[in-house]
Design a protein around this nucleic acid. Structure first.
Length: 764
RNA sequence: GGCCGCAUAGUCUCAGUUGGUUAGAGCGCUCGAUUCACAUUCGAGAGGUCCCAGGUUCGAGUCCUGGUGCGGCCACCA
């Protein structure tokens, strides 16, 4: 054995050894305990290279998986990758842009195929990188989110929700990003503080145009569609205005003043203009009072034809023009330039979110949320993660109905079919026509020029009026129907990951035929969901909601939330700061064991973790320490002590070994076992590190040198430590194990450390 | 504004298990050692008002109340 452990000589080889023995596949060995342990791996984006956050989840989950495998549980780590709808389409569109193209050059089907191929090209990268980290997932069960078997489950769940009356289509104000060209749920909107001008606009009174009311607004540009103003019904200053009429400062049409309690009498002048099509509050007021909802801004962020002379202008430009015109007409009282304001932006690209009235599909969340809340109340679900259970509760209690429609192609297409006959004028088709470029018109007009088949082949997207009847069905219904072009929110499919993957295993492979149990029966519910706290509301919450609904059971009862990985100074890693740590570089330099251990040791659920190169170096040293401790123990086995008298003296003093040593070892096993059972992974890593280095190496090996501890006990100690260390640093411990076998120090039957049994302590 | 989290050695990063001996680790620092498993090493050492103020207790880093500082989530209205 070399005097140094060189990870580059062992990691690849060791992983091959495990894979060759089918060590990750639960079908290749019987359970020794009758218990099961399963984890659904959070699927990384199929086309993304791994970052340090992935290394964190791989390390934590692999520790749990290896531990339970060694305990003898029926252990499955179910791997896969995600299509990551908007993320991926966004990246792909940037690639298209570099080639001077855009998604508008392609029909829906072609674009989908192009993205599919792009993702396939890159999909091996993530998996190979996970293997480099030592992930002992069962790759024979690997799934990709858009495989037909998984999509089938997603569609079934939607149908089931529909049949339970929990799906509806409604014209609502949705959060729309005009750059990404799609709507988002409330979770994907980032609010940022901004200083924007607050305009005080004069509205001439209808019966006396020389007099006027003044009200404050940050958004003057849609004034031309406004039809009403509002005041608080009990505000003495404005009470007399209720029912009065003013003139729209841009169009001179008459506007009525209504009363609604939502108006804050203290703000501005206590008078509000209502723009129901572009403000969530105003929208609600409009519904209460049955006011018209007139759109002023379209999905590309331009003023609609309702905008008269402003039509076609972008929002920002239109605002400038409107203000200029109002000023020219003497209708601006004053401008507060430094009004502090919060503004919704797209979490993806930072563009200002426009609330737009669009018909979208919604899932009623109330019936989904309630079982989760009561499960939290009854401690049926345990969340490890520094108070994030309370954040989850807060989300659940305030959740709005879930808008699952996305106007992108990269995803699961909604199984929604609109009835064509009699509704041709309410169905707007956008298509990439071969000769005429892009066309966009209602179906009635387009059918005069093209056949329906031609249209369907070249379709990009459809926009369907809110009153067109539809059918929900995985396959095309008989008759004249056209399928919705929207796709599901990515999180709607990932919410089903813990069971859609297991169901797909049976569809694809007919697993475990010996016991005739399906993977779903065998591994569902999964044992623990381990993921970052940053996707608690997006993913974990939705998995609980949808999993319970679709399967009748929660997909897991324990959640472990790890924190963000930060740089050595505790700062967030970002490309612009240049402090990003690439896990692959660290693996090349210090080894996967070192990377894993550095991330995990002393980490705490729910709290962020700082790491830097000095940490990786320190943990690389641990690998070397293990290697050299093993070298010493092996030599001790082979070379009898030269000082016979000392040996005899020792033998007479401790004929059956040192009971204190044995006792300490089994107490240690108990401690670490308990810590792992309690999900105190960071603490378990620290304990085994300290005890191995500072007790076993610093004390026990020295005692052996002095003849105070027998060789046999020392060997037993080493073997126990190799097992205890294995989940944390799998490569070096397995490499040592193989050396011990080759040198005949341990039995040839003990083929692999990964499949050996966890040491027994004193505990039951 | 509502809720949540964090505060422990050196301008560092963090553990601390049910409330129980002298509060720990990594990195850094000082002094020394080593052909003897490992210089990717070993030994010795310096370094602490456990944020502050009260309280509960035989006993508080740990539990309670209030405060301070930092961070996060959410709601903030035209």
């Amino acid at each position: 054995m070399d005097s140094r452990y060189d990870h580059t000589l062992h990691e690849e080889k060791t992983y091959q050894l495990w894979a060759g023995a089918d060590a990750f596949n639960p079908d290749s060995r019987p359970s020794r305990t009758g218990r099961r342990f399963s984890i659904a791996m959070p699927p990384p984006n199929a086309n993304d290279p791994l970052h340090i956050g992935h290394a964190m989840f791989i390390a934590l989950e692999d520790i749990l998986i290896r531990y339970h495998r060694m305990l003898g549980d029926d252990t499955l780590w179910q791997p896969g990758t995600d299509h990551a709808g908007i993320e991926t389409q966004f990246v792909f569109e940037k690639k298209l842009a570099k080639q001077g193209q855009s998604r508008f050059n392609f029909d829906r089907e072609t674009l989908y195929q192009m993205i599919w191929e792009y993702v396939q090209e890159n999909s091996g990268i993530a998996v190979n990188q996970m293997k480099k980290l030592g992930a002992s997932a069962d790759w024979s069960r690997f799934h990709f989110m858009l495989e037909p078997e998984l999509v089938e489950t997603v569609l079934e769940t939607f149908k089931k929700l529909h049949e339970a009356g929990m799906v509806y289509r409604d014209l609502k104000l949705v959060n729309f990003c005009t750059r990404c060209g799609t709507s988002f749920s409330e979770l994907e909107v980032n609010y940022i503080d901004q200083q924007t001008p607050l305009y005080y606009v004069r509205y001439p009174l209808a019966d006396n145009p020389r007099d006027h009311l003044v009200l404050a607004t940050t958004r003057p540009e849609p004034i031309f569609v406004d039809t009403h103003l509002a005041v608080h019904p009990d505000n003495p200053k404005t009470k007399h205005l209720i029912g009065k009429k003013v003139l729209n400062p841009l169009t001179q049409s008459e506007m009525e003043i209504i009363a609604d309690e939502f108006v804050d009498p203290e703000f501005g002048t206590g008078i509000v203009k209502l723009t129901p099509a572009h403000d969530p509050n105003d929208f609600e007021v409009a519904q209460r009072h049955h006011l018209p909802i007139i759109s002023a801004i379209d999905t590309r962020g331009r003023m609609t034809e309702n905008g008269g002379k402003y039509a076609g202008l972008k929002v920002k430009k239109a605002r400038e023009e409107v203000v200029k015109d109002l000023q020219a007409a003497g209708l601006i009282e004053k401008i507060d330039e430094k009004y502090a304001h919060r503004i919704g932006t797209c979490y993806r690209c930072g563009t200002v979110i426009e609330p737009l009235p669009l018909p979208q599909f919604f899932i009623k969340v109330k019936p989904l949320v309630e079982p989760v809340l009561s499960a939290l109340d009854n401690d049926e679900i345990t969340i490890h993660g520094a108070g994030h259970d309370k954040i989850l509760r807060h989300w659940l209690e305030n959740l709005k109905d879930w808008n699952v429609s996305r106007q992108i192609v990269w995803g699961v297409r909604l199984p929604v079919w609109y009835q064509i006959d009699g509704h041709e004028r309410d169905i707007i088709i956008s298509a990439a026509a071969r000769e005429s470029g892009q066309i966009s018109d209602n179906l009635y007009s387009i059918l005069k020029r093209f056949s329906l088949t031609e249209i369907l082949e070249n379709i990009q997207k459809i926009t369907v009026g809110p009153n067109v009847p539809y059918v929900i069905s995985a396959t095309k219904p008989a008759g004249n129907y056209i399928q919705e072009t929207d796709t599901f929110d990515t999180w709607f499919s990932s919410a089903q990951w813990p069971f859609s993957t297991l169901l797909a295993n049976e569809k694809k492979h007919d697993r475990d035929t010996a016991t005739s149990r399906t993977d779903f029966d065998r591994f569902y519910p999964t044992s623990v969901m381990e993921t970052g706290y940053d996707i608690l509301p997006f993913w974990v919450m939705r998995m609980l909601m949808i999993g319970k609904f679709a399967t009748g059971r929660f997909p897991f009862h324990t959640v472990y939330l790890h924190g963000l990985v930060r740089d050595p100074k505790g700062q967030k890693m970002s490309k612009s700061k240049g402090n990003v740590i690439n896990p692959l570089d660290m693996i090349a330099k210090y080894g996967a064991d070192a990377l894993r251990m550095a991330l995990v040791i002393r980490s705490s659920p729910g709290l962020d973790k700082s790491v830097g190169e000095t940490d990786f170096r320190a943990m690389r040293n641990l690998g070397n320490k293990i290697w050299n401790a093993a070298r010493y123990v092996m030599n001790a086995q082979h070379q009898p002590k030269t000082d016979r008298s000392l040996d005899e003296k020792v033998a007479s003093k401790m004929p059956k070994g040192d009971p204190q040593f044995t006792d300490k070892i089994s107490r240690l096993v108990d401690t670490i076992t308990q810590q792992l059972n309690d999900y105190k992974i960071g603490l378990a890593a620290e304990t085994v590190y300290n005890e191995f280095w500072h007790w076993f190496c610093d004390e026990c090996i020295e005692q052996n040198k002095a003849g105070e501890l027998s060789d046999e006990q020392l060997l037993q100690g080493l073997l126990t430590f190799l097992k205890l260390l294995h989940p944390f640093v799998p490569f070096v411990t397995e490499a040592v194990w193989q050396e011990l076998r080759q040198q005949g120090v341990i039995s040839q039957d003990e083929k692999l450390l990964i499949l050996s049994s966890w040491p027994a302590g004193k505990m039951k």
